[in-house]
Design a protein around this nucleic acid. Structure first.
Lengths: 232, 232
DNA sequence: CCACGTATAATTGTATACAATCATACCGTT
DNA sequence: AACGGTATGATTGTATACAATTATACGTGG
């Protein structure tokens, strides 16, 4: 009757379908499968040691996530992500993270605020040590906390989708320059605006935070990972 | 090699899975299946005269659309949409339709602009005749044109998702009051701002258009269709 | 009467078999 | 040689069979 573990969401780790789904998503995002490459059900199935059934179900989900395109009776093709897509995503995220921060200002719980502070504190430490992996992890988590704090499952869902989508790019960004520190400073400002119940300021800061992240990415020319489609 | 019919998207009408998917989505949105109702694969399959396989694949998609929740080894449950969800969706759409209109101002083609003008002209006619179904259809189409005109597949995809999600509510809104005419006037203003290449104005107008649509919905108290969960 | 464990039924998860569709290659006609 | 049609192979679409899991009912022991 109640609200089973909400962590289920879509990616139960323990079913074959869930694992296939996650594996394929990871492989597509990491560039293992090139753009427009055809994914064949039997080949994937054999590679992962499963039958076609879970593979097919994973395909249907990947299509809805926009990572592959299924042409009926023909096959599944990797959609790929262009430089323009990334730009558009950051534009959209900029608006929505702003909205999210505004809503979170009203709705955030003490516990969430505390985890945010801890997150920022920890990130400071790891920044000083140059622990890039941990920085990336904490950055992910900071945004997840914000998404949860806005108390809107619609907004949370959309933002998590987009976040996931650009994960690979963003991690590379944090891992290759000094953006990590500046980013964490912006996190702190956002957190403090929320703490001070200044919703408009929180919105504006979160908005800018996304634009800065994108700007930094562009300046560092991190588009090469998209291959030839990169130049847009 | 190229870019097969882009209309495929997700809902090929001719495969069983596609039809099951559409039918279930329609039934969930129309309220045939109540919130938290359990959907059983065999029952659905028998009802539609297909086996479990296409039903299962449709389930996986519906889960990603957020319409059902699948609990591993247990079953699929209708998620339902609350009054708060609707409010959140309109908040999000307000921002994104604004962005969309802004982008469309730069990117729209002559053909698209022409279809918009025709759409508004036709809607005027049907408004004067009280043809509510056609009004709803034209309203849908107006927004679809706008989504296509922004030339961002990411934004278009997200907006279409949300649009779809609130379709049932919106149609009812248009069908029960005089909002249709005012709505079409707003469409005209947006179109003219785009035509005049005033991106900021287009953004602002599209933004307001969504908020007005929501306000009107609230004023007309159209939440009863969501059942008991409505009161938020 | 309650608690616990086991058996049974129902349901989902996965694999496989078969049907339908599409791409390719080959061959004949012009 | 170019075109068109047919046959063949590969791939996806669907149905079904079987395995695993979960919920329920029942019975037994306390």
């Amino acid at each position: 009757m109640a609200n089973y573990d909400v962590k289920n969401e879509v990616s139960d780790k323990y079913s074959l379908r869930g694992r296939v789904f996650q594996k394929l998503r990871e492989d597509i995002l990491s560039g293992k499968y090139k753009d427009h490459e055809e994914l064949k059900e039997v080949a994937i199935g054999e590679e992962l040691g499963v039958s076609r059934t879970p593979v097919r179900e994973a395909f249907r989900q990947l299509e809805l996530e926009g990572l592959i395109q299924i042409v009926p009776n023909r096959g599944a093709y990797v959609t790929g992500i262009t430089a323009k897509d990334v730009k558009d995503i950051y534009m959209i995220r900029s608006l929505l993270e702003g909205l999210c921060a505004k809503l979170a200002t009203e709705k955030i719980t003490g516990e969430q605020l505390e985890e945010m502070e801890e997150n920022i504190y920890l990130a400071d430490f790891h920044a000083s040590k140059g622990h890039l992996d941990q920085m990336a992890e904490l950055d992910n988590r900071f945004h997840d906390i914000l998404y949860e704090a806005c108390d809107s499952k619609m907004l949370e869902h959309t933002l998590k989708d987009y976040h996931q989508y650009v994960l690979r790019v963003r991690q590379k960004t944090l891992a290759t320059n000094t953006r990590g520190r500046a980013s964490n400073d912006e996190h702190r400002q956002i957190m403090e605006a929320i703490k001070a119940k200044d919703a408009d300021k929180a919105q504006q800061l979160a908005n800018k935070h996304m634009l800065n992240a994108y700007e930094n990415m562009v300046q560092n020319g991190l588009y090469e990972i998209y291959g030839e489609e990169a130049g847009q």
